[in-house]
Nucleic acid binder design. Structure first.
Lengths: 227, 227
DNA sequence: CCCTCCCAACCGAACGTCCGTTCTGTACTA
DNA sequence: TAGTACAGAACGGACGTTCGGTTGGGAGGG
């Protein structure tokens, strides 16, 4: 943690360049000279703003997690409404937005897992379950008592949905494998939501139709073509 | 592709050492000298067996995909029986076995995505949907016509399950974040299967009880503690 | 108003080490 | 005698980091 907020412009350029390079080639394969050049500054100046390479990497990850935990993030507003599973379509859209905006930061997570044994990101995932329980435990218990939910653990289903949407959009957009389920993203999201709400086995009552996607629909925009 | 099958013992040592090092530090951060030393041989001899560093990396990934597509692999026997979704417990066990045995190779996939833009692994994921359709289309269509399945796309559900189990066990065992869902692995697997079979919303008929896990049950063994 | 001083911002050469790869040579087996 | 397995020095370059030095704009005294 220990995130410096707004340094000057050239330090920001360094961070931007480093994010691009790290996310495309990994940490060990990215050099300080590449970062300096891409940032349009000198090697010496990079070291003036950051004490070493790892500090740059850690700062980038810290900032991303700060955004991820920011209540102003649309995804967190979806969470705080706790309207699961009625708002699954909005949740998917909000997560797609995060992956679109922060795809490169998400790559840093995988890099940290590999090259740092996850030391900068582990705390985030270790505390994940607790965060979801804090938000969803009470409202979903209430809905369950009203008979609006079946017999499965609803907070587990929230975490499953969130992790699956993140995984799916990340692979689609940043792993370079679009349509890896053999269908459009919006169709895959739609199918996933249907499975989640209704399950595979036949039901006595019919499966309710999908809700209209919230505001501006997404799940269509192409991701970056890597290389 | 172009996989050399059985070179001599020292080439195998090189591959083993490289797998360990690549999976723990990434490709760019691993040096040929580290590989040679860990393999107990000389730098010159490494270059006698492999023309360069990338050939070692590609060989490791090729071998893994060869195993993944081998009909003798227990997971593939589960697939070929096409008993989905009755055999979800066996599928989970078989995937856990793959992740236990080939966790480091799975890390190579993430490394390839980052450091090579996925160039060695893309073909595998691009052809994934087709492979599942070839196996599951006919049997699941038949089951659906017999009224044994609900209204969701069953082949999608197969792919969802497989990808989910791989993702889940990989994060548990190799991302260094055990219990990231706040529960035991076997409990998380159990909950996932329940969601998949029965969905979240209340049902007319009750959700069928879980099947006994096939042979020797797993979902408990600890993974490697990554430093 | 000017002059001085200060210090953050910035630069690039230099340091010692290590990189991927090549090359030459030796030991051993067939 | 040929050829494979192996060893390690050598090469040219790049690595992360340090360091001495140059800017340029604002504070403060006269």
């Amino acid at each position: 943690m220990a995130v410096q907020e707004s340094r000057n412009a050239s330090a920001e350029e360094v961070l931007k360049a480093a994010l691009d390079l790290f996310s495309r080639q990994g940490y060990g394969a990215t050099t300080m000279r590449q970062i300096a050049e891409k940032a349009g500054t000198s090697l010496g100046n990079v070291y003036h703003h950051f004490k070493n390479k790892e500090e740059i990497f850690a700062t980038l990850l810290d900032r991303y997690f700060q955004v991820l935990l920011d209540p102003k993030l649309r995804l967190n507003q979806v969470f705080s409404r706790a309207a699961f599973p009625d708002d699954l379509e909005e949740m998917a859209t909000a997560i797609e937005e995060v992956v679109d905006r922060f795809g490169r930061e998400i790559m840093l997570i995988y890099i940290d897992v590999i090259e740092f044994s996850g030391k900068h990101v582990r705390w985030f995932y270790e505390t994940m379950a607790e965060r979801f329980h804090r938000i969803y435990d009470a409202p979903l218990k209430e809905r369950k008592e009203r008979g609006e939910l079946g017999e499965v653990d609803p907070v587990f289903a929230v975490m499953l949905s969130v992790r699956w949407f993140f995984y799916f959009f990340t692979v689609e957009k940043y792993f370079g494998v679009p349509m890896h389920f053999g269908m459009d993203p919006q169709q895959a999201v739609h199918e996933f939501i249907k499975v989640l709400r209704c399950g595979l086995l036949p039901r006595g009552r019919p499966c309710p139709p999908a809700r209209e996607p919230a505001k501006e629909g997404k799940a269509t925009k192409g991701g970056r073509a890597r290389s």
